[in-house]
Amino acid sequence: MKRDLKNQKEDLLNEIQNVLKDVESLYDEGSKLGADEVQRLRAKLQDRLNVAQDKLQGLEERAMEQVRHHAKAADDYVNEKPYYAMGFAALAGLVVGVLLNRS
């Protein structure tokens, strides 16, 4: 699951780099090319932007799904073992208190 999210992130970054290269190409070649070529490059750029947006949306949905899953797991754990959760919170508070008093 984590590896899949990482792969999606890398794909999205690659797609963004490709879009930026296309933008640079459109800018550089825009003055040299005719209107038909510029329109073709714009259409290609728009397609790339749409792909990048789709990948970003998929990555966002996947990340939200993971957050919900982990929040549900934490909630279930706290409901099943409330004393462990209280003990952990007390221990964390003790550690923070000791660290703050040392300063």
Rank of each mutant, 00 (worst) to 15 (best):
R40Q: 12
R68H: 14
G87L: 09
D28H: 03
M86I: 06
G58W: 07
D36Q: 14
N7C: 01
N101K: 15
K9M: 01
R3Q: 13
A92T: 05
N18D: 11
K44A: 13
E29P: 02
A74P: 00
D28W: 06
Q8I: 02
I16K: 08
K55V: 01
Y77E: 15
D76A: 13
N14A: 14
R42A: 14
K81I: 03
E24V: 02
E29H: 04
K2T: 02
M1T: 06
Y83W: 12
D11E: 08
N79F: 08
K32D: 15
A85L: 01
A43N: 09
Q57S: 12
I16M: 04
D76M: 13
N79Q: 14
L94T: 00
E65F: 07
A89W: 11
A92D: 02
H69P: 00
R40I: 11
K72V: 08
R62H: 09
V51D: 05
L45H: 09
Q66P: 00
E80A: 15
N50F: 07
K44W: 04
L20N: 14
H70N: 07
A90F: 00
V98R: 05
Q39N: 15
L49S: 02
E29Q: 08
E10V: 10
Y84I: 09
E37G: 07
L33K: 14
Q39R: 15
G30C: 06
V95Y: 06
V51A: 09
G93C: 00
L33T: 11
L5H: 01
G34R: 08
K6T: 02
A74D: 11
E80G: 03
G30I: 06
R3Y: 05
V23M: 12
A73M: 07
N79H: 15
Q17C: 05
N7K: 08
Q66L: 10
S31F: 13
R42I: 08
K2H: 08
V95M: 07
L100F: 08
G58P: 04
F88I: 12
A52Y: 02
Q17N: 13
S25H: 07
G93K: 00
F88H: 13
R42D: 14
Y77M: 08
L41K: 11
Q39I: 13
V96Q: 03
D28Q: 12
E37K: 12
G30M: 04
A52N: 02
A74F: 06
Q8H: 03
E37I: 05
R40D: 11
K55N: 04
I16H: 03
Q57F: 08
E24H: 07
D47V: 04
A71K: 13
G97P: 00
K21C: 05
K81Y: 11
